[in-house]
Amino acid sequence: MTQAPPREYFEFFGLAPALSLDAADLQKRFYELSRKWHPDRFSARPPEEQQIALDATATLNDAYRTLRDPVRRAEYVLTRNGFPIGEQRTKDVPPELLEEVFELNMALEELRSGDSGVRPQLESAREHFLSLRAAVDGELEELFRSHDSGGGETVLSAIRGVLNRRRYIENLVREVEKALGARATA
């Protein structure tokens, strides 16, 4: 009789709960586990085993989606260690971004009212936010490494702070791209 696999994502993949992962290795493991657990492999088996395979593959796919993405992976680890990620609060502007966000909103407003003269300003704002995001990603990588070498709660708490900032920047990028994209095709 087939035994259900572990539901914990890292365990399922046979990995230690590290924040830095080798993407190619993860993909290889995903394919191997898919070959083992996919419902297609169980179509001639008893219904109970088919159910186990279905549940296992659903968990496997959910786990892969989570682990292959650094941000989701970090959120998963935070939640499991008692650092829940709250609802995203876009109202809380990180203080160092206050001025830029104010200018951005003005420019977006002007674009919406038909002034395409602000486009260059928005383009450069996008570039700026993208470089901010890249910097944050670098910061995260650094923190991931110190977590994996036994960083403890201080590091987790720091990661949570950086993730919140990243999410805020991500929203800004999306908003600018939406505004630029919508105008470009109109």
């Binding site: 659903a58 796919n61 959910d62 892969y64 989606r65």
Partner: peptide
Amino acid sequence: NSTIPASA
């Protein structure tokens, strides 16, 4: 575009 089976 989530791989299926998928759950929530």
